[in-house]
Design a protein around this nucleic acid. Structure first.
Lengths: 229, 229
DNA sequence: ACCTGAACACCGTTCAAGT
DNA sequence: ACCTGAACACCGTTCAAGT
């Protein structure tokens, strides 16, 4: 209790203990350390050694805290763009890897961010330029650029959702999938059962990195195919 | 107040007012009508005209209610498989459309389901067979089938996430995107700005159906390309 | 202007008591 | 076995009062 003898009322000049930024930083720490459910206004205030109500002078409500977190995490995200030195598809893949890494940096927050339309569109608009640049270089029409970028972003979101869920729950995909397949009624999903059987536990030991690369390879190949028509 | 004179204690035989199924059905109705946040144990009990605590005799806690909802919605989902009468890529697209439609049927629930690993893997294992069948027919190796199916499912999840968010918030993509692009610092995202400008409001009037089809086209083209190596 | 304390209207859940 | 009532330990937020 460093601040046990705290007084109420307005702090003296230069003594403000609270600011929007300080609140959001503390909130991000809670989310990263204890998960999204652990973030309550009361707990947040407690870690700042402040009355819960003090927060409301800097942020209007809890939703604003959430939105502020999304902003905090992604606003500073600058995509390192390899530029025209590499082929367009490498440029595109690099942009995708950067975006995935950004979403991965705060897995507890990612679930929240990806379910929040306005957070997503704020983030996407900041992040998407390298995608557009690469797709433009590939020779796509404006409409094709727009659609390909959307498809790629959707893939990254879906992938990151799975990745974040697994991270926050510490669960092992391969045994889970095998068990589930075994529990299905016999003959219900023959091809699935055969493929899973042929791959075996080693083959299914899911590696998120190679799964992501595989998706990128498929998507860039598909985009390249679209281009030539 | 139909049941104002309710008594406590065990109901007579054949008089049970509560069951797991009745609870979940009522819960789904609340979620569909008022959104996921409106689903509280106390409110759920109220709509069933029952004491909140009675629910705990049928489901251990609120998380079980959520999981039960995911199960309820997707367990009965049978994919209409056009079978080998159509080319593999049409079969694949049909399976994807069916899965998207299933996620779309309860948009308020979709956000929840897609953030819940165990719900997702339970759903996926039931839904994924037609994907495997089509990809197998395309001549992919087991490993390629596995990876292509994952990529496709990730795309559908990311797409559905965006679709569900927009539905639950009733928001218009095109003006939002244009405004956001205009608010970016000049020169920050030149290609994005140019593409958005060339498409114009009409070109950006986002149609989820054609966005989804565009993604499917790219993915199937990419899968076809992978196959021939 | 900024922080506080008490209060309001909620939550999910435990536990002992009814029939 | 199934339902209930009271209680506990929380929430987010409003409002009036301090300095």
């Amino acid at each position: 209790m460093i601040n046990a003898g705290k007084r109420s009322g307005r702090p003296r000049a230069g003594e403000e203990r609270l600011s929007r930024e300080a609140i959001l930083t503390a909130a991000l720490r809670i989310v990263d350390d204890k998960g999204i459910d652990a973030l309550t206004m009361r707990r947040l205030a407690a870690t700042l050694e402040v009355n819960p109500m003090s927060l409301y002078h800097h942020l209007p409500n809890k939703a604003a805290v959430m939105a502020g977190l999304a902003e905090l995490v992604f606003a500073g995200l600058e995509q390192p763009d390899p530029g025209d030195a590499v082929p367009w598809d490498e440029q595109l893949k690099d942009a995708a890897r950067g975006y995935r890494n950004a979403l991965r940096a705060h897995p507890n927050l990612a679930l929240q961010v990806l379910s929040d339309t306005s957070a997503v569109s704020a983030v996407v608009v900041v992040v998407v330029e390298p995608f557009y640049r690469a797709l433009d270089r590939a020779g796509l029409s404006p409409r094709q650029v727009f659609e390909a970028a959307n498809t790629l972003v959707d893939f990254i979101h879906g992938f990151s959702l799975g990745e974040a869920s697994v991270r926050t729950e510490n669960f092992d995909l391969a045994p889970d999938l095998i068990t589930r397949v075994e529990q299905l009624p016999a003959g219900k999903a023959p091809v699935l059962a055969r493929v899973v059987g042929e791959l075996g536990p080693e083959g299914l030991a899911y590696d998120f990195d190679s799964g992501f690369e595989s998706g990128l390879a498929t998507l860039t190949a598909g985009i390249a195919a679209t281009r030539r028509r």
